[in-house]
């Protein structure tokens, strides 16, 4: 339960960080709050030669509303979002997600960018930000690019990050006034990793529904147009139109062979839809 030895660098700005990463030979790991990497280091599942601490970089610790979106620096913590220390464009949705991540002592150090980079399928932001149509802003010494969150997470603990690349910020579009949000997860104990996650963003006025089924031990299932779950058309009556058999078929097709697992995912999805309907 003690980490193996590693060298430690704390660069003072982002360009120094990127230069350091470009120089490192592949056994370097970035650390922000360390709430996922710390346990792995302590258990010696990960033994990097070099740890680069980015938690002090002020370039990654800010948030600002820009036009129709909120830009959140990668090192903003779950606690910062929970406590409302940054602006909100999701009518409280992100605040509620943040407040239910792990435990308060973890939220005070764990960061939004770190959680995405870690890409644990059971982590909250992976699913919630996919449902919110968020983008990640990536940067490396070679340049910058943006990716939708659902294309950033490519598998269990696997992301689209290239060597030498870092998550710089997350960009969250403003939620429409007519949109309904629901987010539900199943945990055996509060704060534990979820066994099922459902995030839904339904807009009866626009007749659109975006549904994410997460904690499936792989990249989340993102249904950009989830009309099929509601009889083919999104109306104000979407809660009653929800067809659990379609959801079950989608999960089966995605490779969830265990009927009990599918049942839990469908039940959680039904609750998230119910939450959206009563929002």
């Amino acid at each position: 339960m003690k980490a193996a030895a590693f060298a430690y660098e704390r660069p003072t700005d982002l360009s120094a960080t990127l230069a350091l990463m470009a120089r490192a030979n592949g056994t370097a790991k970035l650390i922000a709050g360390g709430q996922s990497l710390g346990p792995m280091l302590n258990l010696r599942l990960v033994e990097p030669d070099l740890i680069i601490d980015i938690s002090g970089l002020s370039e990654l610790k800010w948030a600002d509303r820009r036009g129709d979106e909120l830009v959140i620096g990668a090192c903003v913590t779950h606690g910062d979002i929970e406590d409302g220390r940054i602006p909100d464009v999701t009518r409280g949705a992100m605040q509620r997600v943040a407040g239910a991540i792990a435990y308060r002592a973890v939220r005070n150090r764990g960061t939004i960018g770190g959680s995405l980079s870690h890409a644990d399928p059971a982590a909250d932001w992976v699913s919630a930000l996919s449902a919110l149509r968020a983008q990640v802003a990536l940067r490396s010494a070679a340049g910058a690019r943006d990716l939708p969150v659902e294309r950033f997470v490519t598998g269990a603990l696997e992301s689209a990050l290239r060597p030498g690349e870092i998550v710089e910020a997350v960009r969250v579009p403003a939620m429409a006034a007519s949109a309904r949000w629901g987010y539900v997860k199943a945990c055996r104990k509060i704060g534990e990793f979820a066994h099922a996650i459902a995030a839904v963003l339904i807009d009866p006025e626009q007749a659109t529904a975006r549904v994410v089924i997460g904690a499936v031990e792989a990249a989340p299932i993102v249904l950009a147009d989830a009309a099929a779950l509601f009889g083919g058309r999104i109306t104000g009556d979407f809660e009653r139109q929800f067809d659990a058999r379609v959801a079950d078929a989608i999960l089966t097709k995605a490779g969830l062979a265990n009927a009990a697992d599918r049942h839990i995912h469908v039940a959680v999805l039904r609750r998230a839809i119910g939450e959206a309907a009563s929002a």
Binding site: A7, Y8, E9, R10, P11, T12, A16, A32, G33, G34, D53, S55, G56, S58, L60, K61, W62, A63, G73, C75, V76, T77, G79, D80, D83, R85, I86, N108, R109, G110, T111
Partner: peptide
């Protein structure tokens, strides 16, 4: 708390000196 980022971070005055 008033500042953003992981608690305990951002207080160092310079980069780590091995």
């Amino acid at each position: 708390r008033q500042t953003l980022g992981p608690v305990g971070s951002g207080n160092a005055t310079n980069s780590a000196q091995p």
